[in-house]
Amino acid sequence: MFETVRKNHRLRPAIVGLCLAAALTGITACADSTPSDSGKPKSPGQSSHQNSKDPAAVKPSASAAAASLRMVANGDHSLAFHVTPGRLPALVLDAGGGEDSSYWKKMAPELAKRTGSMVVTYDRAGMGKSDEVPGAWKVENAVSDLKAGLTQLGITHDVILVSHSQAGEVATYFAKENPNWLAGAVLVDGSLPEFYTDEETARIEAANKAQVAALKDQPSTQQTRQLLATADGYGPTHRAYHQISWPRSVPATAIVSEKTPFETPEDAQLWRNAQQEFVKGAPNRDLVTATKSSHDIAGDRPDVIVTAVGKMLKAVG
């Protein structure tokens, strides 16, 4: 995997946590994904998979205003939030590990145009225009950063999280702490608590050791520092995460990719099982499979995300 990281200018699909959970066990979750049909990702609303007759599909509205950059402070560091004005519920898009807000550069304006909703993307600490924070990556810190940003933007209710990959962990803790802020969530191949059984976490933890040692020998870059920060305390962090439950009061749609982030059948099935188990946890949860998609659903099947967001908006009024 580290050979791949050196060749690619970014981690794609974006997921630092699963780079360690998957690639460090010999699975190529961090390599560039190849869209299933053509070699180029399709923009939302232009996918050949789009079902234009789907009554739940979001129809285009007037052109959305351009996003504006807002720098917000949380303690001694600043975070970059990009806000496209619109009505509530607000759509807050959170990219996976190793990616910044530019991951949503095509989808954010499309969602704003199609829904008329306010759309917010942001860079987690150490990514994009946000300040880097030294030390181990802690989901509690990520939740604090998101809450601080939304508070300063005045968005403390009627929020729909659209969270990809590692951002599923941020969404889960955020929802548990602030259920009244949320109207719902769309978890895009999200990293969910149900996946991190003791057996799976122990296997990942053991596989991490040699790979992390190799990573430490590489030049220090933003990317390698983020990987090492995620590896620090990975086992205890995810054993604790396995005990966390999504609040039953917050509706959620789990989108799982057909390919999953993993290439081994065993891990891929565990990933699917976790998504299914999550959805069975409450009647206000739905499971959607993004067929013909890798973990990079936003690139391969943006229409699936757009439709899921449209259904969530319709459901919450």
Rank of each mutant, 00 (worst) to 15 (best):
A136D: 02
E110T: 12
C19N: 08
S130C: 04
A167I: 10
Q269H: 11
V162A: 02
I297R: 00
P302I: 09
K314P: 03
A23L: 04
E99S: 14
L227T: 02
A214P: 00
A254G: 00
T260I: 05
Q166G: 04
L111I: 10
A66W: 11
P179M: 03
H82K: 13
P60R: 12
L287P: 02
F2D: 04
A214S: 12
R248C: 04
S38G: 09
T34E: 04
R10A: 08
A73T: 05
D158C: 08
I160T: 06
K113A: 14
V309E: 09
L215A: 12
Q223E: 11
T221P: 01
A214W: 03
S78Y: 01
S117R: 11
S293L: 03
H238P: 01
V212E: 08
V5D: 00
R10D: 05
G17E: 15
S245F: 13
K209Q: 11
T201R: 13
K314F: 05
G39Q: 06
N8D: 08
L69W: 07
E258N: 07
D158V: 00
A62H: 12
K40Q: 10
G190P: 01
K59S: 13
G39L: 09
P265H: 11
P179I: 05
E132P: 00
T28G: 14
A254D: 03
A229L: 04
P251H: 09
I160D: 05
A290R: 06
L227Y: 04
S165D: 06
A175K: 09
S48E: 10
R248H: 15
G233M: 07
Q218H: 08
G26R: 03
R285M: 09
L192V: 13
V188S: 01
A22C: 13
K42W: 07
Q223V: 13
A14T: 03
A148H: 09
R87T: 15
F81C: 07
G317M: 10
A274P: 13
E258P: 12
G184I: 04
S163D: 02
P179F: 01
L18S: 13
H164L: 07
K292N: 14
D232Q: 13
H242A: 14
K106M: 14
D217Q: 15
T34G: 00
A112I: 07
R12L: 14
T115C: 13
T156S: 01
A73E: 11
V162D: 04
Q223Y: 06
R225C: 02
E200A: 14
L228N: 06
Q269E: 15
T201G: 14
T115S: 15
E263F: 10
